[in-house]
């Protein structure tokens, strides 16, 4: 089956005209995300996970290499096409800054559907109600504003927004790291339910436990490179690289 999204020899560099000043965040990464897959990308802070995720989501341009969306190269025109926008949605780490404090929750939850599919009026409102029920947000909060929601509810709202276009893949950048443990578990259950209903996930996390809970496939990132990749069972049970062994051993000690 054609992967929804694939990266081939992808590089992301920042700053500096000369190569000495430039910082390479992502170096020669090749991954493929099949439809419906729950793919986990783990690694410590600064390993290039977020840069990779943002580049895959079309939020920033790669420095080298290419991205394939449903088998076709992702050109700037393809990023702007509604097919890509509808299919790939991004969820930010910090839901407080990802939600406009002066946009009503129901409008916020349906903004992508409004922008991409032109959904307005009663149909938009109905979609908001459906999404609120699906993500177990109180419908009383439809007309409220994000500041009145708890952290967990805000992240549910951000998820609702990502789901509003019925995407094939949601890219989540540390979606639970700002939440406390019980709320985190509830959001992860929500994500698991979404995945079981057929929505693909690309989960970025520094937390091995989070990825283990959710993902079928894992890639381990260090210093901008993928040092290990495979099914979750294989990577977690028998990590091959030294770095992955250390990362997983450290998580075992905590867990």
């Amino acid at each position: 089956m054609t992967p929804v999204l694939a990266a081939q020899n992808l590089c992301v560099r920042y700053g500096g005209v000369s190569s000495a000043q430039a910082h390479t965040a992502v170096n020669d990464v090749t991954i493929a995300i099949a439809p419906g897959m729950a793919f986990g990308l783990i690694g410590e802070s600064g390993s290039g996970k977020t840069s990779l995720a943002r580049t895959l989501a079309g939020l920033q341009a790669p420095s080298a290499g290419r991205i394939l969306f449903e088998g076709n190269p992702l050109t700037p025109d393809a990023i702007r096409a509604s097919a890509f926008r509808r299919s790939i949605q991004f969820v930010y780490q910090d839901s407080a800054s990802a939600l406009n404090p002066r946009m009503a929750n129901w409008r916020c939850a349906t903004e992508p559907a409004h922008l991409i599919d032109g959904l307005t009026g009663d149909a938009r409102r109905a979609l908001a109600e459906t999404l609120f029920r699906r993500l177990r947000l109180p419908t009383a909060a439809l007309d409220g504003f994000p500041h009145a929601l708890s952290g967990g509810q805000r992240q549910r709202l951000a998820l609702a927004r990502a789901l509003s276009t019925s995407p094939r893949l949601i890219i989540l950048d540390e979606p639970t790291s700002a939440l406390d443990a019980t709320i985190q578990a509830a959001i992860l259950d929500e994500l698991l339910a979404l995945n079981l209903s057929g929505v693909g996930l690309l989960l970025i996390s520094h937390d091995v436990a989070v990825v283990r809970h959710l993902c079928t496939d894992i890639a381990v990132m260090k210093d901008g490179e993928i040092v290990e990749t495979g099914t979750a069972e294989a990577v977690l049970a028998q990590p091959q690289s030294v770095y992955a062994q250390e990362l997983i051993a450290a998580a075992m000690l905590e867990g």
Partner: peptide, 17 residues
């Protein structure tokens, strides 16, 4: 620079929107 503006632009919002 806020993420909600980036999210909106990435979903195709015009400058006026």
């Amino acid at each position: 620079r806020e993420a909600f503006v980036e999210a909106s632009v990435s979903n195709g919002a015009s400058g006026l929107y």
